[in-house]
Write a protein that binds this DNA or RNA. Structure first.
Length: 277
DNA sequence: CAATAGCCCTGGTGGC
DNA sequence: TGCCACCAGGGCTATT
């Protein structure tokens, strides 16, 4: 599942290849993925336009066009963006194809078809509430210990659920939350307001560490994720908790436990991450 | 405000 | 080998 590091890797892979390219045509193979506007209008807003930049906000990819229009893409669980050369074998799960003026094509592929695409004018960002209401991201100036302290002080929700909520922190998903919590030695079911200042600081450092490492490793390919060239990441080789239920903790040798928190599979070490703090 | 359930969706897996 | 229930879960909505 692409989270901040995976989406950032895709952006880095693609930005230079897309910049100054004109979208010459588009094949909408699965129209229902386009959430706004109607698919025909979506196409009309993009075809013939030059791509000026590609940015990222949280888990959203933002393709900027010369006419001020923003193509917003969320990959959800199994979405992939890949730039392919002419004549390359088409991904069997290709859903939306942006044909470019140099003969290459940007393929949006998605096995489970949960991804979402939008075409928005600058004053229409509000149409994507998850984008408009996103909290600060790890590794940015706004992501401070003070911000986390104020956020957690008033929250009785479980820390795992808080970290997954994009309106509080942008870009974290299930894998990197579990990794952050085991690194910070904090139990996923701790109440937000119960965290001490030293624990909050540990958590902040751990989140930044895990996200930075994820990016450095080219993302985590646990199952479906591929980068902008169709390649795999390598951070799955460095996971401490996610997907390791029943296996020994790499820090203490205890057994990693798998539970459900807020409806999400949650992996943690009962020994390293005590419920009492 | 928080928790929970349901929805979307398909491939992989385990049981029989 | 076939069949099938079940799971993976991000983000949203509805309900309690």
């Amino acid at each position: 599942m692409p989270e901040l590091p995976e989406v950032e890797i895709i952006r880095r892979n693609l930005v230079d290849r897309l910049k100054t390219r004109q979208i010459s045509d588009m094949q909408v193979l699965l129209p229902r993925l386009i959430k706004w506007p109607a698919p025909a209008t979506f196409q009309a807003m993009a075809i013939g336009k030059v791509i000026t930049d590609m940015k990222r906000r949280g888990k959203y990819l933002l393709i900027e066009l010369e006419n001020g229009v923003l193509i917003v893409i969320h990959l959800r669980m199994t979405g992939r963006l890949c730039c392919v050369t002419d004549g390359a074998a088409r991904d069997p799960y290709a859903r939306i194809i942006f044909c470019l003026d140099d003969g290459t094509a940007l393929h949006y592929a998605d096995t489970r078809t949960l991804g979402t695409l939008y075409a928005l004018r600058q004053d229409e960002i509000w149409r994507v509430s998850g984008l408009a209401n996103m909290g600060p991201e790890p590794l940015t100036d706004a992501f401070t210990a003070l911000y986390l302290q104020k956020l957690l002080k008033k929250s009785r929700a479980k820390i795992k659920s808080i970290l997954l909520n994009q309106k509080y922190i942008g870009g974290l998903g299930n894998i990197y939350v579990d990794e952050s919590l085991i690194l910070a030695r904090i139990h996923p079911e701790r109440e937000g307001a119960s965290l001490r200042p030293d624990e909050i600081e540990r958590l902040r450092v751990a989140i930044n560490r895990v996200i930075a490492d994820g990016i450095d490793d080219g993302g985590t390919t646990f199952r479906d994720y591929r980068d902008g060239n169709g390649g795999k990441g390598s951070h799955q080789q460095h996971l401490l908790a996610y997907g390791r239920g029943g296996l020994p903790c790499l820090k203490c040798g205890g057994v990693i436990e798998k539970i459900v928190v807020g409806g999400r599979g949650t992996h943690y070490c009962p020994n390293c991450q005590s419920r009492e703090g």
